[in-house]
Structure formats: C-alpha cells, structure tokens
Design a protein around this nucleic acid. Structure first.
Lengths: 241, 241
DNA sequence: ATCTGTGAACGCTTTCACAGCA
DNA sequence: TGCTGTGAAAGCGTTCACAGAT
C-alpha cells in the first residue's frame, strides 16, 4: 500500500465497479441485524419499508444502500429475508468468523471478552493479553490471559487481522505500534487517545466520554432554547429586526 | 418540541446565528481532549497545525471547525491553549458536571461505572440501576445499585437529563420508554438494538459488533485487492483495453 | 513573515420522484 | 397495482487557497 503511485486499476473479483460508499458500509451491519431479527420472528419476506423501520432509517436510503450491492429484491414484492441476509453477510465478510485479539483486560476488556454477540456476529476471540503479571494466567470468559509479549505468536498462529485495544490511554499507541509491526491491519480502539498508524491500517475508535459530550452539547442547546422560547413570547413567522 | 409549527426564530442567547454543524460538534470533544493533553505537557500556545495533529485531523478542518465557535485565535500567532480549552468546554457544556444514570449493571455496566474519565470530563454518575434483585444493594464503584423502579425518584432528585442503557437488547426499548416518560432527553445506548424515541430526544448508540463488522468489510476488501493485484501484474496508468 | 479565518469549489450523502419490472 | 432500483436535485461536509490581522 504505497501512497498513490499512479492509479493501479485493480478492480475487484466478483463483478462490476464494486465501490460501496463508506456511509453505506457503516449501515450494512444494522441491516444485517434487523434482518436477523425479522428472520427470528418467522418473517420470510419484507418490503423496503419494513426493513427500513426495523433498522431505524428511511426506505429511500435503505433501497439506495442495497442498490450498491446489487439487485436482490423483487419489484412489486420486496426482499427475501434469508437471501438478503446472506448477501449482506457475504458483502461484509462475516459468513465466516474473523479471529480477534483483545489487549488490555481491565474492566472493559472483561466486558468485551464476555460479550456474547461477538461469536454470533462473525468474530471469535482467540486471545486475551495484558501486560499486568497479576492478570496473566487468569481465565476470563473461558480464555486464559496471556502476557502481552505473546501477541506475535498468537497473531501468527491464528492469522489474526483484527485487534482490539482496551488498555489505558498511555499504553494505546505502543500497543497499536506493536500490532501494526506484527501485521494487524484493523484496530478497534477503546482507549481515549488518537492513534497514529501507517497508510493501509484501519482504525475505528469507540469513546464513551466523547459520546456523552456530544449529548451534553445538544442537551445544553435544548435548555438554552427553552429559556429563549420562554423569554421571547413565541412569534410565528419570526418578526424582522 | 412540536413538529415544525411555523419557523419560530428563537435564536440563542450568547450572540449571532449559533448553528454548529453536527460533524463539528462530534469533533469538539476530540479537540478538548487534545488541548488538555497539550496543557498537561506545559504548552501554553499552539498553532492550528499543532492542535490538528494532536487531534488527528488536518489543520484546515480544525480552523473551519473553530471558526463556527468564534475567533479565538490570534493571526500570526496561534491559539492560547487554556483559553481555547475553556471556550470549547463552554460550548459543549461541560464546564459543570452533568448528572448521569446507568441502567443495566452487567459486565459492561460495571466497566462504565468504574470508568474514571467520566468524572474528569464533565459527568457524574448519580445512580446505578438494575432489574435483577441479585445485583440490587451491591456496591459498584462506590455507588449502591438500586432497583430499576427507583429511576423516577433518582432522576427527579438529581435533575438527570442523560441516561445510559447497558442492558441486554430485549430490555433496551422498555428502559428507553421509561426514561423518556420520566423526562430524560438524551440517551447513550450500548444495547444492540434500534431505539424508537419521540422527537426531541437524542439517542447515540455504541455498538461493538457493528464497529468490528465495518473493520471486517475493509479487511476483506484488502484481502481481495491483494489477490487481484497479484493475479493481474501491475499496470501503471491502467491501460484502456 | 506568519498563521488565522473564511468564501468558494469540490465531493460525498441523502432525499426526491418516477421509470421499470413483477 | 405495488414496490424496487435509480437518475437527478438538494443538502452537508471537507478541502482549497487566499485575504486579512498581527
């Protein structure tokens, strides 16, 4: 993955110009979950309207998103739930399990290791690692915690491509560097720090306090607006000057 | 918050047309954290370039984002770290603490309750609640777990506006309904389910398996591209058939 | 000379509205 | 008739490039 060395036109395997917009990619897992829920309640066919409302989006967006994958519906009828579910799972790449390692087995690491939706959604935890000798050897969610140095061995053995960082912020960059050096190319970072990684490595971050602060901003705005609305008696058609 | 009843022009308190784009709002907490890190290492002034790289964005975006808040920098010089930090904190609304309740004290709820960055970033956990009688009465992170029915009392007493849902998926909608009924207007949802809430209530969701699936998609694409690149010997300037 | 603040251009995402197929 | 699939339009967000302040 050198940086733009001149338009290598390697168009991918299956068929045509397979470029799915990022915004769509981020919603495919939501559709997958909604389809699974529909299938579990015995529904075999659904309209874009049905699926959209189960996924919490509007139907135009859903149809547009699905159109990037291909034409998997039937006009006048709708979508076959199982068929569409398979197509989306295949597109995402979760028809088989991805091996995953988790580094940092504190409170959060524990919770992640015990998270059951993991296994059922295309992932398999192959190792838990921590630098703290106190934790090493303990069994969490049926897996023995290994020393951090065992990372390379584990990653090679299981051909791991995805790593999860659940360490304190100070350790996160070191862990990421190590992961990258060993060949991990996708990182999910729960530590509250900005990770620097080379081109070609994907990082996604999950940050509790950022999410709360975004809510706080809107909450404050609601409060301010309420005050303003009470102070200025409501003027429909908002008077000029 | 009636649905669009005719352009009420309640422009907010402080000054002009205060409309900060959503994308910017989502980055302000990142800037706040980066500024705190800079301040902690004794830096008193920084350029947009410095702050941008600490926050992991480019400087044009940073400057554009800050321009929505006002003109808090000095041309030819840069930004005063403490001053800018205060302005952003004020804008987000975290100059004082927001009281927060957490519902669902399983593995994840435990981890959230113990998360220290909480307190230091503008939030204060005022209650932990769970429907499981086994958990009620236990002390987690110095707070006693209360029965779920204590929600209303707690929310009124502490004037809580923000609730965190860390229950299993099946319970999430019920919890959300209850929160909304009691007057909570911002929800952070960790349960893997789509929440339906009325207009005026903000929901943000954090979903581990969705994040992993997004990574899996890109991982799969990298793998496919590598195969394609190996099969088709690289043609610079991709020859038109 | 330097670095911020910002109009303007560009590109991505969403929504609209309807053609096309069952 | 009913519902999908999709061009075209509208709306956002990012980047460019430079005017303007110190």
């Amino acid at each position: 993955m050198r940086l733009e060395s001149g338009a290598v036109s390697a168009r991918s395997s299956t068929d045509a110009s397979r470029v799915i917009p990022e915004a769509t990619v981020a919603r495919l897992p939501v559709y997958l979950r909604a389809l699974t829920a529909l299938a579990d309640s015995g529904i075999r066919t659904c309209s874009s309207e049905d699926l959209a409302s189960a996924a919490g989006v509007n139907s135009a967006k859903l149809r547009k998103d699905l159109s990037y994958l291909g034409s998997y519906g039937t006009r006048g009828v709708g979508y076959d739930v199982d068929y569409l579910r398979y197509q989306i799972a295949r597109e995402i790449g979760v028809t088989q399990d991805w091996p995953v390692v988790i580094v940092g087995i504190g409170n959060l690491g524990h919770a992640l290791a015990n998270f059951s939706g993991f296994r059922s959604r295309g992932f398999r935890i192959v190792a838990l690692l921590d630098a703290d000798p106190e934790l090493v050897g303990q069994t969490v969610a049926g897996v023995q915690v290994q020393p951090f140095d065992a990372l390379e061995e584990t990653v090679r053995t299981h051909d791991v491509a995805i790593g999860v960082i659940a360490t304190p912020a100070v350790a996160a960059q070191d862990v990421a560097d190590r992961m990258v050096a060993i060949g991990i190319t996708s990182i999910l970072n729960f530590a509250p720090s900005v990770l620097a990684v080379p081109e070609g490595v994907d990082v996604r971050k999950v940050d509790l306090s950022i999410e709360l602060q975004i809510l706080a901003y809107h909450e404050q705005r609601k409060a301010n607006d309420a005050v303003a609305a009470a102070a200025v008696p409501v003027t429909v058609d908002g008077g000029a000057s």
